[in-house]
Nucleic acid binder design. Structure first.
Lengths: 367, 367
DNA sequence: TTGTATGCGTTATCAC
DNA sequence: GTGATAACGCATACAA
C-alpha cells in the first residue's frame, strides 16, 4: 500500500526519465497493477500459467505486451537459485592450438543444444596457473548452473576439483585424469589412428612417418598410440616421428625435419588437418608428388581438407556432434543432479580422398 | 534481531546440508558474524574497503578466506543494477561464413580487454528473422551492461534498435546503416582493396580478375570498391568478377567460373585468404603457375596465408587489435554513458609474399 | 568509522 | 484460483 503510494508520488514517470537512456523498466508489480491482479497471480501467469484463471492469464499476457515487460533476471535467480546460464571453459593454451579451428563449431553445437532453452552461454577463458583458481571460484560461486570444459591439456587437476565441487560438468575431450564420476564426450582417437595405419598399410606403403600433435594432449596421444599400434599390427615400423603443435606452420617445420632424416618416407600421418596442409605444402615444394610418391592422411575432416590439392584423406572428428551432445548432457544433469552418466565416445571414421588415391603405377599394374 | 534468531534456530547447518552437493554457501551476514562486525561494515570492507577501520578490514578479510566467501552475484546486481557482464552478439549467418576463421581471434581479443575486470562475456547467437526480436529483448532486458555486435550482413536494422535502446554497444565491422551515434571499429577495407590493385598494377599485370565476398557484407563490398577504384586509377579494367561466400570451397568454384570465361587472367584478387586458398588450388590443378603465370592476392592475413604454397600475399585484417579495442571502448562507454565516441578505423597494410613475387622472366629481364 | 533500516524484483508458502 | 507475506543476499542513505 505504502509502496504503491510512494511509486505514484514519485513524480510523473515520463516527465522524469531516470537514467539518461530510458525510463525504468516495468516490474512485476507494475504488470500486476496493469492487469488488475496481484503480484502472485501475475507471477504464476508468467511462469507456465498454472493455477490461474483463463481471464486473469489473458489480462496478464496483454499487460506484458502493453508494458513490454521483461522479468528481472537477477531477482529471479536470487530466489530460485538458478542462473539460467552455463559456462564454456577454455584454458588459454588450448584456444590457439587446438580450439582455433573448432571454436565456431563448438559454439555452434552448444548453442544448438541450448536453442529451445532460455539458457545463455558464458565464456570463461582461463589463463594458466593461478588464474585457474579464479575460474574455479567463479564456477563454484553459483554464477552458472553448469559447465562445459574443453581441455585437452594436462591441466592442474581441474577434473577432480570440479567434480568434487558438485557443479554439473561435462568435458569435451577426455581429460587426462578421468576417473570416478567424470563425464565427458569424445571421439575414439585411438581407433582413428589405427584406421589411418590400416589404410596406409593397405596401400602397400612401407615407410610411413608421423607428424604427431602435442604429447600433453589426450587427443594427440591417443591418435599416436592407435597409429603406432596399427602399424605394428600390419607389420610396419614407424619411419620417423616428429611432434608439432597442431598448426599448419608446425606441420611444415615437422615435415622438413622428417624429410631431412627420412628421405625414403612414402607416407605421412598428420594428427590434424592443419598440420597435414603443412605436410602437403612441403612435399610439393620438395617435388614429392602426392599421392604418387607419398600418401598423406590427416585428422579432423576440417573444412579445409576438401580444398587442398590434392584433397586430403582424413579421419572424421565430429566436433559439432560432440558439442551438441555435451550441451544436451549438461542440461540433463542440471535437471536431474546426481546422475553421473557414462562417457560418450563416437566411433572413428576414415574419409578417403585424393591424397591417398592408389598410385598410377600400381593401379596400372592391377589393371 | 528476529532474523538472527530464526537463523540460529534453523537447525545445525553442518548436520543438515541443503542440496545433495554441499552446504549452503556463506552469506554476507555469516561473514559479518565471523568477523564480528555488522553487515554494512562487511559489505564496505569487501567493496574497496573505504571508510572502514584497518582492524575491521583485516577481520573481514580473514573471515573471507576462512569461510571461502563469495558474494552472491544475483543479489548484488539486483541492487546495483549492474550485471558485470557484456554480450558478444553474432548473427548466425555470419558464424560459418565470416566469423569462422576469426572466432578464436575475436574472443581472445575481447577477453584480453576484459582481463583485469570481473566482467564476463556472454555469447549470443541470433538466428535470422524473428529470433532477432528475442535477442534484442534479451539485450535491453538488463541482462548485460553492454554489447559487442559482430555483424557484417545487411541485418534488419539492428543498428538503430540497439542504439536507440540506450544499451552501450560497439560494432566490430562497420554496420550497413551506420549513422548518428553508432560506434564501431573496423579496418579500412576500401584502402585495402586499393592497395591490392596498386600492387597488381605495379607488377605489370594486365588482366586482373576478382573473387569477391558476399555483396551484402560491408567488408566485402568495401574491398571490392577499393579494388575496382584502384584498378581504374591504374588504367586497368576488371577482367571478370565472381562472387563467393568467403570460404575455400566458394573460392574454388568462383575460380573455375572465372577461368572458364576469362582464360587470359593473369592476376586474381580474392577478398579473403580462405577463398585465395581455393584460387591457388584451382590454378595449380589447371597448371597455371603462381606467381609466374598468375599473381594472387588475398585478404585477412590469416594464419594460413603463410602456409600456402606459394605463400600468399595478402592485406592485413587486424582482427585481434580490433576486438581488443572494441572491448576497451565498450568498458569505457559503460563507465561513462552518453559519450558516443567516433568510429575507430585501422589503416590497411599489404604483406608481400611469394604469390606475387616478380615473375622469373621479368626479373631476368631486369637483371 | 560503525550500525540500523530499507529496498532491489521475484518466487514460494500458506491461508483463504 | 487468488492474494497477502516472508524470504533471497546484498548495498546504501542515514543516524549515531
Amino acid at each position: 500500500m505504502v509502496k504503491v503510494m510512494t511509486r505514484i508520488s514519485t513524480g510523473t514517470p515520463d516527465a522524469a526519465p531516470r537514467q539518461g537512456s530510458g525510463k525504468h523498466s516495468p516490474t512485476l508489480e507494475d504488470l500486476a497493477a496493469a492487469a488488475g491482479v496481484s503480484r502472485s497471480t501475475a507471477s504464476r501467469a508468467i511462469n507456465g500459467g498454472n493455477r490461474v484463471s483463463p481471464e486473469a492469464l489473458a489480462a496478464v499476457d496483454a499487460a506484458v505486451v502493453a508494458l513490454g515487460y521483461t522479468p528481472n533476471h537477477a531477482a529471479r535467480t536470487l530466489v530460485t537459485r538458478r542462473t539460467s546460464s552455463i559456462a564454456l571453459v577454455i584454458p588459454e593454451p588450448d584456444i590457439r592450438v587446438m580450439m582455433d579451428p573448432f571454436f565456431a563449431v563448438v559454439i555452434t553445437g552448444i548453442t544448438e543444444a541450448l536453442r529451445e532453452t532460455d539458457v545463455q552461454l558464458v565464456l570463461l577463458m582461463s589463463r594458466a596457473g593461478d588464474d585457474a583458481g579464479r575460474t574455479l571460484r567463479y564456477l563454484r560461486g553459483g554464477h552458472v548452473d553448469g559447465a562445459i570444459v574443453v581441455s585437452h591439456h594436462k591441466t592442474d587437476s581441474w577434473t577432480d576439483q570440479l567434480a568434487e565441487g558438485g557443479l554439473p560438468t561435462i568435458f569435451i575431450g577426455r581429460p587426462w585424469n578421468a576417473g570416478r564420476g567424470v563425464t565427458y564426450v569424445d571421439t575414439n582417437n585411438y581407433d582413428g589412428g589405427r584406421l589411418a595405419a590400416r589404410h596406409i598399410a593397405a596401400l602397400g606403403r612401407t615407410h610411413p612417418a608421423t607428424v604427431a600433435g602435442p604429447a600433453d594432449m589426450t587427443a594427440a596421444a591417443d591418435r599416436l598410440r592407435g597409429w603406432q599400434d596399427g602399424l605394428r599390427a600390419a607389420g610396419l615400423r614407424d619411419n620417423g616421428l616428429e611432434y608439432a603443435d597442431f598448426t599448419t606452420e608446425g606441420g611444415r617445420a615437422a615435415t622438413e625435419r622428417l624429410l631431412a632424416r627420412h628421405p625414403e618416407t612414402d607416407a605421412v600421418f598428420a594428427s590434424s588437418d592443419l598440420m597435414a596442409v603443412g605436410v602437403l605444402s612441403v612435399l610439393a615444394a620438395r617435388g614429392r608428388e602426392v599421392p604418387r610418391d607419398v600418401s598423406v592422411v590427416g585428422y579432423d575432416n576440417h573444412q579445409l581438407a576438401e580444398g587442398t590439392s590434392p584433397a586430403l584423406t582424413t579421419v572424421i572428428n565430429p566436433m559439432v556432434t560432440m558439442a551438441v551432445r555435451a550441451g544436451t548432457m549438461l542440461l540433463e544433469e542440471i535437471e536431474a543432479p546426481g546422475t553421473h552418466p557414462d562417457p560418450v565416445i563416437y566411433p572413428a571414421e576414415l574419409v578417403e580422398r585424393e591424397s591417398t588415391a592408389v598410385a598410377p603405377s600400381e593401379s596400372a599394374a592391377k589393371a
